[in-house]
């Protein structure tokens, strides 16, 4: 391994580390909602992918409305902030509605019922997104499945360029992912540890019946958490617009759901700290795979394969995940 690393210069390795941090930031945004929802409610939310897809398209529409192609300077970032807020609030409302109208009817039922329900919600939302995209574009039935590159040309100009930081060439969107990832980690951490609702969420995660007996309306807490989780999924979906490894199609959420699940399982089901650690590990694994596949092996799927190796090794060596207490499948 050391020999393998030595054939790259320190610059390439440092750039890989920073790219890995960016990937970790993206994974944190993708997986935070999943882990919060599972941690409190014990619901493995398969609709998360559909929320990501809707976040991508809502983000694209927000960019067309508020931003302009390759906007330079601060003028590119302020509309982007507006798009993130729009997407977060929109998806939070949709997620809260789904929890309030559908998911809460199945609390106390076997986990398979909730999985089937959220899978059904995902399928319906995915189909609705497809119908909407085809209507909006006036295109043929496969328009929603065809990569749509235009939204990626909107937003800050720096997203399409390399930025030089301390002599290292870093993709502008990677720096943004690191920043937003850090904001999400800090925001969720502060929300969980410094607010009354965060306290209720942590108490309810441990013993929802006792929390209810203390006068905490745990159903309202569930709705808020589902909403926040869905909002974060939407923001992650918007970020995928600029990811070279993802095409903007209605399948984008399903594609992104896989690494999100890997991060949640590797970190330990329902632990936010575990998710952050796992996102960092997975981010570095992925970018190390990119480094190897572009310089050593001609094997484009190596980064994804490394993620699955990470998952398999974790499940064998530590079935609870890095910081989890409950074994996967241990219900």
């Amino acid at each position: 391994m050391t020999g393998l690393l030595l054939q790259f210069g320190p610059t390439a390795l440092l750039e890989t580390l920073i790219q890995g941090l960016g990937q970790a930031g993206l994974y944190v945004i993708l997986a935070s909602g999943l882990t919060l929802i599972f941690g409190l409610m014990g619901v493995l939310n398969f609709a998360h992918g559909a929320f990501i897809t809707i976040g991508t398209y809502l983000g694209a529409m927000g960019l067309f409305l508020l931003s302009s192609p390759n906007a330079a300077g601060v003028g590119g970032f302020l509309p982007l902030l507006g798009v993130f807020v729009l997407v977060f609030v929109g998806l939070m409302a949709l997620g809260s509605l789904v929890e309030f109208g559908l998911v809460r009817r199945l609390y106390g039922r076997p986990p398979i019922d909730q999985i089937l329900l959220t899978f059904g919600v995902a399928t319906v939302l995915q189909q609705l997104a497809e119908i909407f995209v085809n209507l909006f574009t006036g295109g043929t039935s496969n328009q929603a499945q065809t990569p749509w590159p235009e939204p990626a040309t909107y937003g800050p100009a720096v997203f399409g360029e390399n930025v030089t930081v301390a002599g290292l060439a870093i993709d502008g969107v990677v720096l943004m992912e690191i920043l937003v990832g850090a904001v999400v980690v800090a925001g969720v951490y502060l929300f969980l540890t410094r607010t009354r609702y965060g306290l209720y969420i942590r108490a309810g995660s441990e013993d929802d019946e006792m929390a209810e007996a203390l006068g905490i309306d745990i159903r309202r807490v569930f709705t808020v958490v589902f909403g926040i989780g869905s909002g974060l999924a939407g923001v992650a979906g918007t970020f995928l617009i600029w990811q070279s490894t993802y095409d903007v199609t209605v399948a984008i959420g399903a594609q992104a759901l896989l690494p999100a699940f890997i991060v949640v399982v590797v970190g330990g089901l329902g632990t936010f700290t575990g998710t952050v650690v796992a996102a960092a590990v997975a981010g570095f694994f992925f970018e190390f795979g990119v480094l190897l596949s572009t310089n050593v092996f001609d094997f484009v799927s190596l980064p994804q394969m490394l993620l699955f190796i990470l998952l398999v090794v974790t499940l064998i060596v530590r079935p609870t995940g890095i910081l989890g207490e409950e074994e996967v499948g241990g219900h």
Partner: peptide, 24 residues
């Protein structure tokens, strides 16, 4: 009524196995 509503009306519970929130 929901349990939280009963609790809000002034009925407290000290359960058999204490049921602390152990990580809090």
């Amino acid at each position: 009524k929901r349990t939280s509503d009963v609790a809000k009306r002034g009925v407290g519970w000290i359960p058999e196995d204490r049921r602390m929130f152990g990580n809090l």
